Simulated scan of single mutants.
Amino acid sequence: MTALLDIRGLSRHFGALRAVDDVSFAVARGEIVALIGPNGAGKSTCFSMLMGELRPTGGQILLDGQDITRWPTRRIWRAGVGRTFQITATYPSMRVVENVQVALMSHHRRSFALVPRARGLYRDRAMELLATVGMAEQAARPAAVLAYGDLKRLDLAMALAHDPRLLLMDEPTAGMAPAERAALMTLVSDIARDRGTAILFTEHDMDAVFAHAERILVLDRGRLIAEGPPAAIQADRSVQEVYLGSALEDAAPAAAQREETP
């Protein structure tokens, strides 16, 4: 597969602290890749550099062969890199469909249209996106009354409004019940397959990681210590030491099921 995202020797230092230290990896179109590691491993710093929120100390970030290392956040976003957040970035006072309409207005550079006549702008497309994430029936509800799992789905619909080639997902299942986690990650897998969207996500729920990631990257103290398919990562001694063995052992059934699925 051709690399959509190509990271080469990426580093970010804060004085003597090497938050991210000479990290290299690639993500192909339509591929689902998990970036995992203990707290303080450098995952959030890595995401912040990919979105232009932090300038790297060294290294390169290539998107479809183009160097975007020092691009500002908005330019990276315009180039097709979307992001969802651990804490959802929705508008509580607006209806569900209006949240998606606002995202579509931004995508089409129609932010100036935030006046009463904007109520009908891109409504049909907003409803299509809500249907994609299973939220069409809640379109008229205020976002403020949604359950947390539904807020996560709305956040995903808003990210998809920008038609991203690469979607960065920061702890997509955080705060969700087990059934909601499974449903959301299945939805994300379907989106990657159907749209060809590359997915790079961080996650502490190892069941979600081993059930849905095609490849796993493991960070520890800023360095990439392992990379490979779920079964290889589970068997890696250095990864077992980082997670003290328990998280990976708990996720064994999900990893085994994925390896056996044709």
Rank of each mutant, 00 (worst) to 15 (best):
1 M>H: 13
15 G>E: 12
17 L>D: 08
22 D>V: 01
24 S>E: 11
26 A>I: 04
28 A>E: 14
34 A>N: 02
37 G>D: 05
41 A>I: 05
42 G>P: 06
44 S>A: 00
45 T>S: 13
51 M>H: 07
51 M>P: 00
52 G>K: 04
53 E>M: 15
54 L>H: 12
54 L>C: 05
54 L>Q: 11
54 L>V: 10
56 P>H: 01
57 T>Y: 11
57 T>W: 10
63 L>G: 02
66 Q>Y: 10
66 Q>A: 14
71 W>E: 12
76 I>A: 02
76 I>D: 01
79 A>H: 11
83 R>P: 04
86 Q>A: 04
87 I>C: 00
88 T>L: 06
88 T>R: 04
89 A>M: 11
92 P>A: 03
92 P>R: 08
96 V>C: 05
99 N>A: 03
102 V>G: 00
103 A>T: 02
103 A>K: 03
106 S>L: 12
109 R>D: 13
111 S>F: 14
112 F>D: 00
115 V>S: 05
115 V>Y: 09
117 R>L: 15
121 L>M: 15
121 L>F: 13
122 Y>S: 03
123 R>H: 07
123 R>V: 06
124 D>K: 12
125 R>C: 01
126 A>R: 01
127 M>F: 09
131 A>N: 10
134 G>W: 08
138 Q>W: 14
139 A>V: 06
140 A>L: 13
141 R>T: 07
143 A>V: 07
143 A>H: 03
147 A>L: 14
150 D>M: 07
152 K>A: 00
153 R>L: 06
154 L>S: 01
156 L>V: 04
156 L>H: 07
163 D>N: 14
163 D>L: 08
166 L>G: 01
166 L>K: 02
167 L>Q: 03
168 L>H: 05
168 L>P: 03
170 D>T: 03
176 M>Y: 11
178 P>V: 04
178 P>Q: 06
180 E>F: 08
183 A>Q: 14
183 A>H: 10
185 M>S: 02
186 T>R: 15
188 V>Q: 06
189 S>Y: 00
193 R>Q: 14
193 R>S: 11
194 D>E: 15
196 G>E: 05
196 G>I: 04
197 T>Q: 02
197 T>M: 08
200 L>A: 02
201 F>I: 05
202 T>I: 15
202 T>K: 03
204 H>P: 07
205 D>E: 10
206 M>C: 04
208 A>C: 15
213 A>G: 02
213 A>E: 03
217 L>R: 01
224 L>I: 07
226 A>T: 09
235 A>M: 13
235 A>N: 09
237 R>A: 15
238 S>G: 00
243 Y>S: 05
243 Y>M: 11
244 L>K: 12
244 L>C: 07
245 G>M: 12
245 G>D: 08
246 S>N: 09
250 D>F: 14
250 D>Q: 14
252 A>T: 08
257 Q>D: 08
261 T>R: 15
262 P>Q: 12
